[in-house]
Design a binder for these strands. Structure first.
Lengths: 267, 267
DNA sequence: GCAAAAGTGTTTCGTTTACACCCATGC
DNA sequence: GCATGGGTGTAAACGAAACACTTTTGC
């Protein structure tokens, strides 16, 4: 029998963290899952997570487990509930503190690092371990609520994005369709978006992260000229500018607004 | 040394629940606190709560502790976060799952049952134990958010209430002032309020809970005729009706609306 | 060149806000 | 009867929703 060296006067439950990571590939929302290699629920998929260490709080524990199991190094996660039903883990009494996180497009490929981590579109989610089905529903619910008031959508996109990309993201999360023109207006009048008005010849080789790897954007199907095409065009005629307007999220301006009047991103 | 009979292979934190109970006396928002009788933080005030048993989930544990310590038997509590910082309890590693609850006017007097439970107006809160100051701020924040979308205000009032009472409650929670006429319109057009249009001679001795004890209403300063005055008037002239319109919350209608279109109580 | 998606303004409608007077009640 | 608080309607301003055509892009 294994050594049981941590003893208490009263029974203590085990405490774990779990993290529901959402990603967006330009078309649909995905979640990151880990295939369980051992019992219980061996072969089932589960959210990355694990037991909390004694020298870390829940947020720290969830970020650590996420990095260990998937290679994802995120900064912001948000607690959305605890799961404490008595029989939820067959081994012992386990209480889980659950978080959700948003991964940028550029993080989506990082999933390959961890052998058993894989992205699943929301409508192709496999059988999940423990009460993780329920956990997923709760996470979706919280995400839908939060996106009305917090600029969380931008965490799922690259540093720059187009309006249609942003709109598709909102539509994916909320499950509704918006009028394109009204969406533009509403987003622009929030004042937290900045138009990126740069010269196309630098734009394609410039500082925007997702631009570095064309394969991602090709995968995502983002309508954009291919490098060879655009560069040849550019050198032919400099006055001919790329039309697709790209935007970036101005966090500083958002923080200012938020302090002034309780600012809301309503949709 | 005390017997340490519950042993585990890895260290386990202790898990507690805490419950922030809000009450409304007609004028201001109050919270229910317990004076701690032993170390740590002996003599400080704290939210009712305690260690989770192994045969109950967090909600059940919080409700049990609440009943044990304050005599309050509530049905609905809402989790608003966990508190898991490493040093938050000097005795051992303790993780607390925190809930908030709303007590009706008629519950306010029940606080006398538990010797050491006492209501405090929000601006006269004493020094709190552990990280309960922080917990209170988080609870207030969550309550403010929730009241925009959920009919939680009604849980703080009696079965029937007047518009000004309801308005004062919203103003207390949100810390703002509303125009009386606009408040009426907005509340009425939600369709979840029912006007109680009963005969005054029954109204004063009828089924509405908070009517049974005039002392509470006197304490609350709710403008309403005193029993002797109104009854004499009633017997003098039956056509003279009580003017103060009272309302009740129609939960059934709210549930219907909520299912149809995602219904919101916006303020 | 053609089909598909991006970009842009205006009008209509509904909601929110601002505002003032009379009536009922309690003292 | 007087002061306090309760009850009601309307007009102006604002924000949301509906809607069509031109330009750009990708094939």
């Amino acid at each position: 029998m294994e050594e049981q060296k941590y003893c208490y006067k009263y029974p203590h439950p085990a405490v774990t963290t779990d993290c529901v990571v959402f990603g967006f590939d330009g078309h649909e929302l995905k979640i990151l899952l880990i295939e369980r290699g051992r019992e219980p629920y061996k072969g089932y998929w589960a959210f990355p997570g694990g037991f909390l260490n004694m020298d870390e709080n829940a947020t720290q524990g969830a970020l650590r487990e996420l990095a260990e199991e998937t290679g994802l190094k995120l900064e912001h996660i948000k607690e959305f509930g605890t799961f404490s039903d008595v029989g939820r883990d067959p081994r012992e009494r386990v209480i889980s503190i659950a978080f959700y996180a948003l991964a940028k497009k550029s993080d989506l490929q990082g999933g390959d690092d961890a052998a058993k981590a894989q992205w699943f579109p929301l409508n192709e989610v496999p059988r999940l371990a423990f009460d993780h089905d329920y956990m997923l529903r709760k996470a979706m619910q919280k995400l839908k609520e939060d996106i009305h008031f917090e600029p969380i959508g931008f965490d799922l996109l690259g540093d720059s994005f187009t309006m249609p990309e942003l709109q598709r993201l909102y539509e994916s999360i909320l499950g509704v369709q918006f009028d394109r023109r009204n969406f533009y207006k509403k987003m622009l009048q929030t004042g937290i978006l900045e138009e990126i008005d740069e010269d196309p010849s630098t734009a394609f080789f410039g500082s925007h992260r997702e631009m570095r790897s064309m394969s991602i954007d090709a995968l995502f199907g983002t309508p954009k000229p291919s490098p060879s095409y655009s560069t040849s065009r550019q050198s032919d005629d400099d006055s001919r500018r790329r039309k697709r307007t790209r935007f970036s999220f101005n966090k500083k301006r958002y923080d200012e607004f938020k302090e002034d009047h309780n600012f809301r991103l309503e949709f």
